[in-house]
Nucleic acid binder design. Structure first.
Lengths: 256, 256
DNA sequence: TTGCTCCTCACGTCACGTGAGGTGGC
DNA sequence: TTGCTCCTCACGTCACGTGAGGTGGC
């Protein structure tokens, strides 16, 4: 007869695990020898390996208990289901590997692929990491709140970059981050922005009616970007002085 | 700004999980709004997804905590290690699938492959499931106790079946299970067994000297098989009457 | 006597789950 | 007032791990 450690060793489990299975009623308590030690027969080895195989496949012990009493047909069906689960688990692990690997190299994780493509486009246009980060954070918040809108919005935003004037303005805005707040170019830039918006008002209005972003969110985007650069605060002041409600709201709010 | 459920939803976790990560110090507590609700920014989304990706890859939270503060180089090394673990996990799952599948169709689980082959040989010789089970249980116990001996022993046992006489005796013994205890064939069979053993004494002795099985284990094998059939009890009585110590010890014990 | 394996409580651990009781704006 | 989301304890769960204190044969 086998001792508990021989039994456990053969099934590749700890002694505690065997005792736990006794407590849970999965493995019947065997007889004891003169010293009160448990003594196991061959059937216990078979039973324990059965239990262990199922438990290691992720079957909860409560269900293992039920399966041990199932008839062969029912058991075979359950095994098929367990196999499906195991295959699904393999797929999930592959997905995990992909995601863990992408942790090393930045974006992507929190964003749908279209947005990642868009951010790559910004980079390739020569925009700074600073503004790419601001964009990224904005899109992350948008994706978290309105996941179903992101596809449309990113399409519209990307399309705006087809316009050379818009591209130049955006690049200028990016560079203005490090300007002094009393740099005269800030007023020029404000003028350019207003001119551009007025020119293209029709298309912008049409686009905006499809985009139900509330003020609070727009306000957040403002707050987040603005807090940083003195030049950008100044730019906002200039725009407000000219009747707009701030630069990130530029395309949304009519002049007073 | 995002509420806790928006944040959780985007990362695919429960609200409780987010709070748990706060408690564990993994995710910094954000500011509160007027109602005392937590309000999250885009960075929290990125942070949470980082934590979640690592946690789902099976990294313990205590280690996640350390990894979040690691420099990129150290982080990259850790990610490589995690990837190795994930690959190992995939292999383990494939192994589990194999083992769970084999649960449906019997043996194999508790036994090394040579023994499974041996049992298949017994079956193909026309021996009953009853005696195959007795053999299987014996080998399971042997494998549990002396895993390193099983290879040699099974080789010797299988070789014995090359002898036609031995094969016939074994088949006869199998069939005798259902004989009446006063069937005259039992005495004939006992005679045949003794004759066979005496004939081949030399080879048997040589084999036995290589096989250090203690009496207690042999006794177990006896006890397990004997309890069942009246004819087998009777066989044992006859053998004992003729000076042997029992049929499973036939090959081991000298006549008195 | 020392070392080893076994025994039985019984509390600990890990990553949350699950009420219990309460608040704040529509 | 009802319904919804949030809040903070604090105990529960799952599958064991880990001592604590003791026994029995070499």
């Amino acid at each position: 007869m086998l001792t508990i450690s021989e039994l456990a060793g053969f099934a590749g489990v700890t002694i505690r695990t065997v005792r736990h299975y006794h407590d849970r009623g999965l493995l019947p308590e065997p007889g004891r020898d003169a010293s009160g030690y448990r003594r196991y027969d061959a059937q216990a080895v078979v039973d324990l390996i059965r239990i262990r195989t199922l438990a290691e496949a992720g079957v909860p012990l409560s269900r293992v208990s039920a399966l041990l009493q199932a008839d062969p047909e029912e058991f075979a069906r359950a095994v098929e289901e367990i196999d499906r689960d195991l295959r699904a688990q393999t797929r999930r692990i592959q997905e995990n590997r992909r995601r863990v690997a992408s942790l090393v190299s930045g974006d992507g994780l929190a964003l749908p692929p279209e947005v990642v493509t868009y951010l790559e486009m910004l980079r390739s246009m020569g925009l700074s990491e600073r503004i790419v980060t601001i964009e990224r954070d904005g899109w992350i918040l948008l994706s978290a709140r309105y996941p179903e809108l992101v596809g449309d919005l990113i399409g519209q935003k990307a399309a705006a970059f087809d316009d050379e004037i818009f591209r130049r303005l955006y690049l200028m805005f990016d560079q203005s981050y490090s300007w002094s707040p009393d740099d005269p170019r800030i007023e020029v830039m404000a003028d350019l922005m207003i001119t551009y918006m007025t020119q293209d008002q029709e298309r912008m209005q049409a686009a905006l009616e499809q985009v139900p972003i509330e003020e609070s969110l727009a306000g957040l985007l403002d707050a987040q970007a603005i807090t940083t650069a003195p030049a950008w605060r100044r730019l906002e002041e200039v725009l407000i002085a000219r009747g707009y409600k701030g630069w990130t709201n530029l395309s949304r709010i009519e002049p007073a």
